[in-house]
Design a protein around this nucleic acid. Structure first.
Lengths: 227, 227
DNA sequence: GTCTATAACCGGATAGAC
DNA sequence: GTCTATCCGGTTATAGAC
């Protein structure tokens, strides 16, 4: 199973060519033939390394996640406020995906198909999903302030879901510099912080329990085992 | 612009063939060639009437909406309680779409593409979206009980969005009889009613305003003019 | 195991003749 | 309005070279 250096290099070359072309021309125009040509390999060779065009996109997924984590870097260490931490992570997210906006929509096409491995809720995506949730776990874990304990446990998953919602909006956002998404993100972060505050009030016990019960139900369907 | 009877008949023939084949074989297997053949027309002729395969699906959309409205019928008139009304509409929704579960996933592939006319947030879908929101407007309008006025105005749109979320879950739900979706729907309706109650408390003014402000922002991006 | 080259299949979409 | 012919790109197949 050990791959030879040459194979690794070829695979990387193909992936880079694909990502470049996705950026430059969007999804449809970046044909497999063009990708292979740009990478300097035969069409069949591209398929040798990537079973389909969608597999190329899975790699894109991974890449944006890595870039997101890199963009956050160690900056979280300096912040103790929940809102500041969440804002940091969300800003880094939007910045890291921006270069790919052009073809993100078409990507989402596959992602929405329940049968597609690209679907963020699919079993195949579980590792990526779990990794992506990890950063929100960090956000919550390092936050000072009153957050109801049951909420603290579920919050990372909720934040991951929330961030998927923002990405969904971003995909549809055609405003210059994605202004609308940024505004929505900032407002919604503010709202989330408020809601977490309210939900953590002792009085809100029943509502909180109803909400968390439902969320666990929702999560159960896609991930049989919770982390 | 008046269409000749022959044209209407041909178009209908093609549409019926398409819906039949979608039901029988699912989306992918129902090729445009097969549809044309079943309808007894040439491939090019199918494209003369329906610009793309996706346009055929738009018709499918419309049909499920009509069926939903039919399933609700006049039953709303008998109920004055918000929760009961919302439950009625949501149950009718799940029942009316159930026969199509098998290929709904593949349909939603296109629906998720921002560039697709099928996208529920797209301009092309605005009529359908508005119609679909209408039923939630009715739900709210006929409900007795304390609901903050600003909330009342925005609630139909929020409920439409909520119902889209439930449908999204339903698409991914492989449990027998879609049990999980039903349970989630019932729990979430309960939660929504609780939340509306809490949000309508005078004390919640700031949170409510933050939430509604954000929602309007969100809505603004897809519908330039609010109803 | 890695890679090339080439041809072919399939289905969505289009052009242009009738 | 309807057809036939054709294009185009994802995908597969094949046969062989290093």
């Amino acid at each position: 199973m050990k791959q030879r250096p040459k194979a690794v290099a070829t695979k990387a070359k193909i992936l880079e060519a694909a990502l470049d072309l996705f950026r430059e021309r969007g999804y449809e125009a970046a044909t497999m033939r063009a990708i292979a040509e740009r990478a300097g390999v035969a069409l069949g060779n591209a398929y040798y390394y990537f079973g389909s065009k969608e597999h190329l996109i899975q790699a894109f997924y991974d890449r944006t996640h890595v870039e997101h984590v890199a963009a956050v870097g160690t900056k979280l260490d300096d912040l103790k406020d929940f809102k500041a931490r969440l804002l940091l992570v969300m800003r880094a997210k939007l910045e890291s995906i921006e270069p790919y906006h052009r073809f993100a929509g078409l990507l989402f096409r596959s992602a929405a198909d329940p049968a597609s491995p690209l679907n963020p809720f699919s079993a195949e995506s579980q590792p990526v999903r779990q990794e992506a949730t990890e950063i929100f776990r960090k956000v919550v874990a390092g936050s000072r302030g009153r957050i109801a304990p049951e909420l603290r446990a579920e919050l990372p998953n909720l934040l991951w879901l929330y961030h998927m919602g923002i990405v969904l909006f971003w995909i549809h956002d055609t405003s210059k510099g994605r202004r609308r998404t940024w505004r929505l993100m900032e407002r919604s972060v503010d709202l989330i912080v408020k809601l977490v505050g309210v939900a953590s009030l002792p009085l809100m016990g029943p509502v909180r329990r109803a909400a968390l019960g439902m969320v666990r139900e929702l999560r159960g369907s896609t991930q049989e085992s919770a982390a």
